[in-house]
Design a binder for these strands. Structure first.
Lengths: 225, 225
DNA sequence: ACAATAGTGTCTGTTAGACACTATGCC
DNA sequence: GGCATAGTGTCTAACAGACACTATTGT
């Protein structure tokens, strides 16, 4: 009798960004079997010699395949079993990264890398379609009661811009007064002394940034919004 | 050069039950190294030949170590890395099970199995202490806006009993009127035609049970409680 | 009748959304 | 001054908690 084949240990990353008011997922073209040539989530084997844990594996995958370091990288869920990968019994620890669009302009759009709108995704190999759905569900759910969407903004932003980001993620309009009240209660933003002029020929809006103590962790609201 | 050692793939289960108004965790005494003799979460290697996925592994572990089939078994998170297990780089997919106390009376209290109150836990091997904390956090969080605690009740229960379960899990008193309003809005309970008499010499309370369509999934409330 | 708990009607403070208004820049 | 957007004051409806009351059993 031969030794049983080992279990394949991998990580997959759902990198989300906001482009033209729509969430987009980063996909890479697979250059190896199985599914060579297909678009799929960036992922790869855990390197036990190199990675201290699976989160480090996910960060490495993101660095190697998209050339970036995501400020937000959260474990999503783990997908496993005999059926999901033709190579054998596998474990895929899925991570979700949120990145502002401007970090993806030059680097990530190398050959074999693409941003695809989440409402126009092709069929994905493995169970990657399911993984993306879980990521969207999680991000939308967390956006209802936390400051998570600020990770999709650049370092400075106006309140109307931030509200638009929330509305894009949640896919529903928000009340302006309530939104600003909530942002005020969360206490995570501080105005920067300059004003934004944008393109419009209108009144400029105050720029805000995250207070230093909120750079590292989310801010949660008791009752949502 | 020799092949690198494989990554160890395991599952761990945090089984929670309510006993005397306090959440208890099921621990088993380890009979093998490392940490032989110590109390730890029930867990074990994934059996790629036997388990269709990690959830099946967790169900098998629960069956083998505690002799029961949990109606609620949810993936919690995955713990991984070089540091958490002295045997090497490991992946532990953690699951959370909720079980009503009466299912644990005879079977599970075999030798080498114990229920320990969560506020009196000993130091646990590996990162099991951290895993228990994540489980408690998740259960308490979900209990704030879902019907999750009904999994800790027997099949029929009175509203005062259910409220006591919620209060035990959340560790805070709840308003009676609001609680009953919410349960009514969730629409998941139906009265059964008999009344409960319990021990007390007082007015008996109406017994309720889950409506059939809510047996399989949680019921969520928009605004909590 | 009384004790003790089950269950309900209603009042009040809080919160979220609607609306209308003012403010401020560019043309 | 007009226009378009930023930002605010205030009214109202919905909701959650407090309180007080009624209901129903066993002793």
């Amino acid at each position: 009798m031969s030794a049983p084949p080992p279990i394949l240990c991998t990580v997959d990353v759902v990198l989300l960004t906001l482009r033209a008011g729509t969430l987009h997922v980063l996909l890479v073209r697979r250059d190896k079997a199985p599914f060579a040539g297909a678009w799929a989530l960036p992922g790869g084997y855990i390197h036990a010699q190199e990675d201290s844990d699976a989160q480090a594996s996910a960060a490495r995958v993101l660095r190697d395949k998209a050339g970036l370091q995501s400020p937000y990288l959260e474990q999503l869920a783990t997908f496993s079993g005999i059926a999901r990968d033709p190579r054998g019994w596998s474990v895929a620890i899925a991570y979700c990264a949120l990145v502002p669009e401007h970090l993806l302009q030059a680097d990530a759009l190398a050959d074999g890398v693409a941003l695809v709108a989440v409402d126009a995704l092709p069929a994905l190999p493995f169970d990657h379609g399911q993984i993306v759905n879980v990521a969207l569900e999680r991000v939308r759910s967390k956006s209802q009661y936390s400051s998570l969407p600020v990770y999709l903004c650049s370092e400075q932003f106006t309140l109307p811009q931030l509200q638009a980001v929330y509305e894009s993620v949640l896919d529903e309009p928000l009340n302006k007064v309530s939104f600003r009240r909530k942002m005020d209660e969360l206490g995570m933003l501080e105005p920067v002394p300059g004003a934004l002029h944008s393109g419009g020929a209108h009144r400029p809006a105050q720029l805000y940034r995250l207070r230093p103590e909120f750079r590292r962790h989310l801010s949660l609201s008791a009752r949502g919004l």
